[in-house]
Write a protein that binds this DNA or RNA. Structure first.
Length: 679
DNA sequence: TGAGGCCTAAACAGGC
DNA sequence: CGCCTGTTTAGGCCTC
């Protein structure tokens, strides 16, 4: 970086501003991005590793030093001008600049030079002045707050003592507590102010925060403090501040050694924010403070001491008692390179853990939110984990209990959940085509498919959840739902796509399966009709192929429920509750909206949710909510164009008779042009 | 472990 | 020829 500035031929001897800009840049660049030669004392950097933030003064001083160096170079160049090319002449000395500056003993700069340099700064002198004034004002404020806080503390203690003796005046206590609270809020505001100031300095490049240093976590930490911690912090601030004040006068002398050696004060701001920054140069408020707290209050419970072993990372030295531990701590883990490095590593570990914790918390929150929603509705509509779900929830909640809200026949409800399908969303297809897809139980276990479909109609329509029924059962259901108990193949197709979002994609696959099932199973009888062939159901044959009935066997039902990934609790409820509805092929909207069934199902479902929720939540998590319109994959529609002629034929009767509420958007699946027009 | 059920894929044929 | 419908076969997975 320095090379690119100094060795470059671009840099002419007169371009001091350029030099300062680069110098400024480097001084404001995190150490990890820097060249091995920092602008201030490399020795200090390596040995202490404590200076992590550069104060404005330090920067000014460095700039002045470089300016001096540059002036010297210019003088030398003037003396040797014509002897060497500027390029070569610049190159070597320029590289030395930072080092020489760093190692140089402080020198006095004339006011003219100072003025010159300041004029060439990236920041104007006025800006610097303002920043310095801001810092001083903050310091002043802090002092005032500190004094005020002390007074408050004394007052509080006095009052507490008085009240202990008198045992009265809870009102005053409240007032004091309120004052304390207000003051703590003031403290927090103060810290916020300082944080903002810190950030502003950072943005302006005047202050360097090392990557990984908790400049931002500082605020949450401060906010998370309990009053006692704040109090302790103030004590530490007080001591550190007074220490800083003692060395503060040296700053004005622009003494590099003082500034750097007083690495205990790398910057006023950081010092204010964190007195412990002096120990390792990192803004760590929380851990050391807690350490000291616990150390004071519980002398023998040190976070670094436990079970007779020093818990310093990588140490594990055996200390027989606490005193020996303290000796060990002071001797082996004193403030040196190793300790500070280890501390920094530990800090990064903590940061990583905090990051992980935050992520896990977020995940937990999402899970809880999701489960809470699930527990309030008998059959959750697809709940994508995004902000749209809030709309979806309220909507689906009303949809899930259609008895509460009568359907408006012309308004498809699902399009309110505008969740687009994206690769980031785990689709139910991907989830269910592998595992649970095999678990079809309705045939075997006599779970009324019509009830399930009726109760979860909206769910199936909107969620790409594979229905837990075999193709044969679905085909039979489709046929039985028709007024004449017969359907053409295309009508069966339409029924599938209309009733299940799942079957709006991969049409070639499932249609092939439908045809395969129609041909394979004897229960499906092909009847030649005037318009062609229609399919009917031979119930006798259908019952024949379901010999394994376990209805009435609770244990098997339970196993079925627990092992089933779809709609299990609801089916369990329906198993017991919806016999009134059972296998009525032509269920109506009224039957769908039976409040008793719905409530009972919900109640039973809640009772069962302990073991089932996770499966359902998985299901729901993997079921992206989507509107039917969006769920209709245009590609698939085009791949498998449905016959609009059929839609106007017998199918219209079927849908009109049975699903008038959804007829309009059912048509959308059947009539592609309309669908696209609507979209 | 084997049988049966189910799903998926594919080939093939006939009709429109 | 392409598409739809219908049949058949094969393989794999799952449950019992």
């Amino acid at each position: 970086m320095f090379q690119c500035v100094f060795s470059s031929s671009v840099l002419q001897p007169h371009s001091t501003s350029c030099l300062f800009k680069h110098l400024f840049y480097h001084s404001a660049t995190p150490a990890s991005q820097k060249q091995p030669e920092p602008i201030y004392s490399k020795k200090t950097e390596i040995q202490r590793q404590t200076v992590r933030a550069h104060s404005v003064k330090l920067f000014i001083f460095s700039a002045l030093q470089v300016a001096r160096q540059l002036l010297l170079q210019q003088q030398q160049q003037q003396q040797v001008s014509g002897l060497k090319s500027p390029k070569r002449n610049d190159k070597q000395p320029a590289l030395q600049v930072p080092v020489s500056v760093a190692m140089m003993t402080p020198q006095v700069i004339t006011p003219q030079q100072m003025q010159q340099i300041l004029q060439q700064q990236v920041l104007s002198p006025q800006q610097l002045q303002v920043l310095l004034q801001q810092q001083q004002a903050l310091m002043l404020q802090q002092q005032q707050l500190q004094e005020f806080y002390k007074k408050q503390q004394e007052q509080l203690q006095l009052q507490l003592l008085q009240q202990q003796h008198a045992g009265k005046q809870p009102k005053e206590q409240q007032q004091v507590a309120t004052q304390q609270l207000a003051f703590q809020q003031q403290l927090l505001q103060m810290q916020q102010l300082q944080q903002q100031h810190l950030l502003s300095l950072q943005r302006q490049g005047l202050l360097t925060i090392q990557p990984g240093q908790p400049a931002l976590p500082l605020q949450p930490l401060a906010q998370g403090m309990i009053p006692t911690e704040l109090q302790q912090l103030w004590k530490e601030v007080t001591s550190a501040h007074s220490a800083e004040e003692t060395t503060g006068s040296n700053h004005s002398s622009l003494d590099l050694t003082t500034t750097c050696v007083s690495s205990s004060a790398p910057s006023k701001t950081s010092l204010i924010m964190n007195p412990h920054a002096s120990t390792n140069g990192q803004l760590s408020v929380h851990t050391p403070k807690r350490e000291s707290l616990s150390h004071e209050e519980h002398p023998h419970s040190h976070p670094l001491y436990g079970h007779g072993v020093c818990k310093w990372p990588g140490c594990e030295a055996v200390c027989e008692d606490f005193q020996s531990f303290l000796k060990h701590l002071n001797s082996e883990h004193a403030l040196d390179d190793r300790s500070t490095a280890q501390c920094r590593v530990q800090m990064q570990v903590v940061q990583q853990l905090e990051l992980q914790l935050a992520k896990d918390k977020e995940r937990l929150q999402a899970m809880m939110t999701h489960l809470h929603v699930k527990s309030t509705e008998p059959k959750a509509a697809p709940q994508p984990l995004n902000l749209v779900s809030s709309v979806t929830l309220s909507k689906s909640a009303s949809e899930a209990s259609p008895q509460s809200l009568p359907h408006t026949p012309t308004t498809p409800t699902a399009p309110i959940t505008p969740v687009t399908q994206g690769p980031s969303v785990i689709t139910t297809t991907s989830m269910h085509t592998v595992g649970p897809i095999r678990r079809r139980y309705s045939d075997k276990y006599n779970v009324p498919i019509s009830s399930d479909i009726a109760q979860n109609q909206e769910f199936y329509k909107n969620a790409e959840v594979r229905p837990p029924f075999t193709y044969a059962s679905l085909i039979r259901q489709a046929i039985l739902e028709s007024p004449e108990k017969q359907l053409t193949l295309n009508e069966i197709y339409n029924w599938f796509t209309r009733m299940f979002a799942y079957f709006r994609r991969n049409a070639a696959t499932w249609k092939n399966a439908v045809r395969h099932n129609l041909s394979l199973h004897k229960c499906f009888v092909r009847v030649e009709n005037v318009k062609g062939a229609v399919w009917t159901v031979d119930e006798v044959e259908f019952q024949k192929r379901r010999p394994q009935k376990i209805s009435g066997n609770p244990s098997l039902i339970k196993n079925m429920q627990t092992s089933h990934a779809y709609c299990t609790p609801l089916n369990a409820a329906l198993q017991q509750a919806s016999m009134a509805e059972n296998s009525i092929p032509l269920y109506t909207t009224a039957s769908m909206g039976n409040p008793t069934l719905g409530n009972l199902a919900s109640a039973i479902r809640e009772e069962l949710n302990g073991a089932m929720e996770h499966t359902n939540s998985n299901e729901s998590d993997s079921s992206p909510g989507r509107s039917p319109l969006q769920a209709v994959h245009p590609v698939h529609v085009k791949e498998e164009p449905l016959d609009p002629e059929e839609a106007e034929g017998p199918l219209s009767l079927v849908t009109t008779a049975n699903h008038s509420p959804d007829f309009d958007h059912d048509r959308d699946y059947e009539d592609e042009p309309v669908n696209e027009d609507m979209e």
